[in-house]
Amino acid sequence: MKRSFKLVGLILLGLLAFFFIFVPRMIDSSKNKISIEGPFERVSWYDSIPFIADLHCDALLWDRDLLKKHDYGHVDLPRMQTANMAFQVFTIVSKVPRGINIEQNDSHSDQIGLLSFAQLQKPETWFNVKERALNQARSLYGFADRSEGKFRVITNKDELQKFITDRESDRSLSSGMLGLEGAHCLDNDIKNLDVFYKAGIRYIGLAHFFDNEWAGSAHGMKKGGLTEKGIQLVKKMDSLHMTVDLAHSSQQTIEDVFKYYNGPLLVSHTGVRGVCDNQRNLSDEQLLKIGARKGLVGIGLWETAVCGKDAAATAKTIKYVADMIGVDRVALGSDWDGAYEMHFDVTGAPLIVAELLKLGFTRLEIEKIMGGNIRDFFLSNLPD
């Protein structure tokens, strides 16, 4: 009998060890696939592009050591260095409902709690979206601390300018900034905006895949606009020089932001309906309004965004936006590590350059699209 109990105990321990050691990586690698494998050819001047940047990456969700090169997922520091990537916005995903889709989701379920448990994150992250989000923010600073100066977290204009200057003499340097995907993790308390500001968050997508206390989502049940609390939130964000990200926002939320928010606007990861018609993407009217506000539109690398599975599809959408609101208003917004199959990982960025050349963009225009526009946007709009 004792031997049987010991055997059962050993089996249970083995199953637990398998769960905690292997399951998180299995989920990461199965969710974050790529359509095209590298290595990738690049034009002769690719490595001299001064500032390659991207507006949206969810790598912090996966408890991956970003200082090590991985053979799965989309982004880590060694692959950023290979790609000559200067700047990546790391966005925080804190809650995702079951059965996630672009049409309609409620807020009654939460898959990220179980993922946090499987990753052996702190117990407070299992059930509390605010603590979960702050834990991801701290992890990016932890990578910077351990990077021996090769990776920096950017929070203001001076830090960004110093990074740009330092990188002119050391192209191995890279940097990141923190964004928030969904204001639900403010925990229904506007005072928590100050907490997230101090944690380094510099843009906030008001709603993710479900409606929340602040704003309606394009994928929510009601798809309403800004609530009264939401109006207060965007006004306070403006006072702190925090950028509103319109990605995932409902049509009414977007209109309300145009009405009540005077600060900088971006759409961190999207497509456009003029190329790929679905409710996840921006209409021509919305593009024109964002352009008039000197906003920035990040174009994605997944099929729902651009109706294609390669760099040519993303380049086609970039050209559509550039033709409509100007080449200074469009950028990369990959959604790498966002639990979708992407065209390629970060090392595939040279493929976008090649496709933009085919579409007739000049080298100067390509340098803007590949990161110069993001650099200039944040040099203008980050806090002093």
Score class of each variant (00 low, 15 high):
residue 285 E to M: 06
residue 285 E to L: 07
residue 292 A to V: 02
residue 295 G to L: 10
residue 308 G to D: 12
residue 290 I to P: 00
residue 303 E to I: 05
residue 291 G to A: 13
residue 310 D to Q: 01
residue 290 I to E: 01
residue 298 G to R: 02
residue 314 T to H: 02
residue 302 W to K: 08
residue 290 I to Q: 02
residue 312 A to D: 15
residue 307 C to L: 11
residue 286 Q to F: 08
residue 306 V to C: 13
residue 294 K to N: 15
residue 289 K to I: 06
residue 317 T to H: 10
residue 294 K to R: 13
residue 308 G to T: 09
residue 304 T to K: 14
residue 292 A to G: 11
residue 313 A to T: 07
residue 300 G to L: 06
residue 294 K to V: 01
residue 312 A to H: 08
residue 314 T to A: 15
residue 294 K to A: 04
residue 313 A to P: 03
residue 289 K to E: 13
residue 290 I to S: 00
residue 290 I to F: 01
residue 306 V to W: 05
residue 308 G to F: 03
residue 285 E to Y: 03
residue 299 I to W: 03
residue 301 L to P: 00
residue 308 G to Q: 09
residue 300 G to R: 05
residue 294 K to E: 10
residue 311 A to M: 06
residue 291 G to N: 11
residue 305 A to I: 05
residue 287 L to C: 09
residue 311 A to I: 03
residue 294 K to D: 14
residue 304 T to L: 14
residue 315 A to S: 12
residue 307 C to V: 10
residue 285 E to N: 11
residue 298 G to K: 01
residue 300 G to T: 09
residue 309 K to L: 07
residue 297 V to C: 10
residue 285 E to W: 00
residue 312 A to Q: 12
residue 303 E to R: 10
residue 314 T to P: 04
residue 289 K to T: 08
residue 291 G to H: 08
residue 287 L to T: 04
residue 286 Q to P: 04
residue 309 K to N: 14
residue 316 K to I: 08
residue 304 T to N: 15
residue 291 G to C: 13
residue 305 A to C: 12
residue 315 A to H: 04
residue 307 C to W: 05
residue 288 L to S: 14
residue 289 K to G: 06
residue 314 T to F: 00
residue 317 T to A: 15
residue 315 A to L: 06
residue 311 A to G: 12
residue 313 A to E: 05
residue 312 A to G: 12
residue 301 L to V: 05
residue 309 K to S: 14
residue 299 I to E: 09
residue 301 L to T: 10
residue 307 C to G: 12
residue 305 A to N: 13
residue 306 V to D: 13
residue 290 I to V: 13
residue 292 A to S: 12
residue 295 G to P: 04
residue 287 L to N: 06
residue 297 V to G: 08
residue 292 A to E: 14
residue 312 A to I: 04
residue 313 A to F: 03
residue 287 L to W: 04
residue 314 T to D: 08
